[in-house]
Simulated assay, not measured.
Amino acid sequence: MSGGSSQQKTEAPSPRRLREARKKGQVPRSRDLSAAIILLFALAMIAFLKDSMVISMQRLLLEYYRAAPTLDLPAENLLFYALGFTARMCLVIMPVLAGIVAIAVAASVVQVGVLFAPQVLQPKLERLNPVEGLKRIFSLRSLFELVKNTLKIIIVAAVVYFVVKARLPEMLLIYFKTPAQMLDLIAAALLAAAFAGGGAFLVISFFDLLFQRYEYIKNLRMTRQEVKDELKQTEGDPLVKSWLRRRQREMIMNAIRREVPRATVVVTNPIHVAVAVRYEEKEMSAPVVTAKGAGDLVPVIKRLARQNDVPVVENPPVARALYQVDVGREIPVELYRAIAEIIAMVYRLKGKVV
């Protein structure tokens, strides 16, 4: 039972797993949301610029129509003439096209941030496998997408239907309008229906985005064993780390047992840190820190010092400063005076004892 449960993906994906998935281009993204935003932005641009675009197109058409009777072109130049006309037409709608490209990029960045995943472009042989292709086509995922898209079409179509139905009485009066008024009425009706459908599409796409994120996290879930294996890879095997900590503590304790009995004095905080200092006037140019400890090592150092008749001096500022010095190094110059006074006091006490 425990072995089976350990293989169930019940753990949330780790940051490392999420980073690796992102590098592969696997991100929670709703194509419907991007499409809805692009559609609504394009409609807004058209509604805002339609008058100026229509006027520009009218001027362009009039220019070509007026020039047509007097135009004498060889047959081989007609293609270039048509291409020039098409290019000028594209310039008229260029603001809308540029806006659509910009909003498409922005919609993608808002969902997944700036992402460059070259691995997505690498060819994968499994994509050419017809068996795998059939599995994807006849999978539960494909069935779900089919149902989702069908519901999406039904909801959007229903919204558009009700908008058009509300405008139907106004549309019946189209026969009493001038051609310009007819075009304005049809354009307004089409835009209203398109905005309504796009708005419904946008609302649906938000739910699709939430679902895509849920599916993304669900598919990246990990088993407990995978979490343990990843922890070993990223932070090392806990058993090895525990052994290293024990080994380091043993080395520190051995150094303390060896050096504290030989120290000249032990300076303490008194309960936070303890530092053993050794000074031999004829052998050393300056006192040397031979051992130090903090926390539960402080009583050990103090007990060893007392057992070996090494004086213990409480001086919190000096103890803190000495604790910053590496074991085996001479004390810094700025501590000479303080340590000299402590050692002088120790020598006087030893002289009294003797």
Rank of each mutant, 00 (worst) to 15 (best):
K241M: 06
K241W: 10
S242V: 12
W243Q: 14
L244R: 15
L244C: 09
R245K: 15
R246N: 14
Q248M: 13
E250W: 15
I252L: 13
M253I: 08
M253D: 00
N254P: 12
N254Y: 14
A255E: 08
I256A: 03
I256C: 01
I256N: 00
R258Y: 13
E259A: 12
E259Y: 12
E259M: 07
P261L: 01
P261Y: 05
A263M: 02
T264V: 11
T264C: 11
V265F: 13
V265N: 08
V266H: 04
V266A: 04
N269R: 00
P270C: 10
P270F: 06
P270V: 09
I271V: 11
I271R: 07
H272K: 04
V273I: 08
V273D: 02
A274I: 04
V275G: 04
V277I: 06
V277M: 01
R278A: 10
Y279G: 03
E280N: 11
E280K: 07
E281M: 15
E281S: 15
E283K: 14
M284H: 09
A286R: 02
V288S: 05
V288C: 13
V288K: 08
V289Y: 01
T290Q: 07
A291E: 02
K292P: 01
G293N: 10
G293P: 07
G293I: 15
A294F: 05
G295L: 07
G295M: 07
V300Y: 05
I301G: 00
K302C: 02
R303P: 05
R303E: 09
L304W: 05
A305Y: 05
A305M: 09
R306H: 15
R306M: 12
